[in-house]
Amino acid sequence: MEAQSPFTTLIEISNYQSTTGKKNLPGDFALWIFIFAEMLVFGVLFVAYAFTRAYHVELFNESQLTLSRTSGAINTLVLITSSYFVVNGVSAIKQGLSKQCGYWLIGAFLLGGIFIIIKILEFHAKYAADISMSTNAFYMFYLSLTFFHFMHVLMGMIILAFIIFKVLNDGYSAKDYVGVETGASFWHMVDFLWIILFPLVYIIR
């Protein structure tokens, strides 16, 4: 049945992983299914943005000027750096260095905090200017996309916090680090989405 449905493929990937022990995706597959779904949602949102923009080029260009590119750019750097920290954290735990891993992840967590603060300042500026999702099509997309992403950053920070707590209590080791990899995968997704979102919404005209 179902010669090659996408879902069957998923099952095959998962079986392959759990039976052969070989991994083509880092971390737990359960989260990857979630990541696929999230990417799909964001993907559709990005495409929807592009199409709507094509119909309202002037409105989008004009409204885009009110965004703070500087804070967007800083946040891009912040997230990329945090992803670098997470990568270092993962390689630390692969060598069994729980403490180092914890510190790298704390660094990433703090950078996430900086992202959140900058983003809140941005949101506040828009709120003060009486701009909301109902103002126009551009702001609808801008606020929807960035708020949706904002919540993902918060979610990622919560996941990091759990992992930090566990790793500092020696809950992971050089043999058992799937949990760290899983959290790292989520964090990289959050970072990756922002790297698309930032140029798309803040820069491309």
Partner: peptide
């Protein structure tokens, strides 16, 4: 944890 698709993570 050898399996990379676990019920607890799900």
């Amino acid at each position: 944890m050898s399996a990379t698709f676990t019920k607890s993570m799900a």
